[in-house]
Amino acid sequence: MKTLIDKKTKSATLVLSEELTIARVSAIRDALQNVLEEADNLTVDVGVASEIDLSFLQLMCSAHRTGASRGKQVTLAGRENTVLRQAVVETGYLRMEGCVLDVGKNCLWVDKYHE
């Protein structure tokens, strides 16, 4: 887990590697919460994750709506990672339109995954 914060633009990138699964999900929640205190723009990079499970997708939803409620933006990077794509498809997470809380119309799961 690695956090890069640009204090001037208040942008941060959280690079998450290896297994993003239930065993680590509490620690990731703490990290997300801390970064969101400081940054207005948060990019969570999962490009090198080796495993992604439902609890992580759920946590990203939570982070995204938490950001939206505070006028902050949470985005995902590393979408080309097939591990992510597979998780999104298998869990039925892929959708056409974001949830009610998705005020910025930038739901993490809309339409960005081929097939």
Binding site: I22, S55, C61, S62, R65, T66, T91, G92
Partner: peptide, 18 residues
């Protein structure tokens, strides 16, 4: 066809990620 319903996921401060 599978649709995940995610409306009940709470905010970061309230969620029990497990």
């Amino acid at each position: 066809r599978i649709t995940a319903l995610t409306d009940d996921i709470p905010m970061l401060e309230d969620i029990d990620p497990e």
